[in-house]
């Protein structure tokens, strides 16, 4: 039949919000399969390409990390607005993860504790507009934008990520099952 010789490559954008880049590291752990992936996708805005903003409409967005500050919100909204499918990628994106441990504390107390002078006599919380302000809590991605898929794991293993991506790329509804599905 007349199958296109060079089907359009899918555009993928990725980001790490309030995460540790562990999910991205796990992504790179797919090792030589990266070559196979490179034949199928093209990376847009991502820590991997160092492109600062989405250049055009993307097919897939992988969002690592929860939403802890104003900048996270802007980045997340940009990815959502420019992507057909958005994935909460890893434990922090799914439910806040380790950064959300501060949710039990008042953000004011956190800040004044961190920015105390060494002798504890005064606090000097920076007011530089370059620094994004903290939200009162760390929110999971799905409480700020609509999420299409959740990929749990801290981090999701390379095999899990591979299975998920290949499912998506071949048009199958992604199904992650034991032993690939892990929440820790």
């Amino acid at each position: 039949m007349n199958a296109p010789m060079n089907p359009r490559k899918l555009r993928v954008t990725t980001t790490s919000l309030s995460g540790c880049f562990g999910c991205h590291m796990s992504f790179l752990d797919i090792d030589e399969r990266l070559l196979e992936l490179a034949a199928l996708v093209e990376f847009d805005r991502s820590p991997i390409t160092d492109i600062k903003h989405c250049s055009q409409h993307c097919d897939l967005a992988l969002v690592e990390g929860g939403v802890c500050n104003a900048e996270n919100v802007h980045v997340l909204r940009e990815l959502r607005a420019n992507s057909k499918i958005l994935v909460a990628f890893g434990a922090c994106a799914v439910n806040g993860g380790l950064p959300a441990q501060r949710n039990h504390l008042d953000v004011g107390k956190c800040l004044s504790q961190v920015y105390r002078t060494p002798d504890g006599s005064a606090t000097a919380i920076p007011d530089d507009p370059e620094l994004p302000l903290l939200l009162d809590k760390v929110y999971p991605v799905n409480e700020v934008v609509r999420v299409d898929y959740f990929l749990p794991g801290c981090p999701p293993s390379a095999d899990t990520i591979w299975k998920f991506l290949t499912d998506l790329l071949t048009g199958r509804t992604p199904r992650i099952e034991h032993p690939l599905l892990k929440f820790d």
Partner: peptide, 30 residues
């Protein structure tokens, strides 16, 4: 739409940092 007011969620940090510039606020949509 988020279940909570994003701009209000910034208010405590805004107050502590003494800021009120544009970057210290979150509008309804990007």
């Amino acid at each position: 739409v988020p279940a909570f007011d994003l701009d209000a969620a910034l208010s405590r940090a805004r107050e502590l940092a003494g800021r009120d510039d544009a970057a210290a606020h979150l509008g309804e949509e990007a």
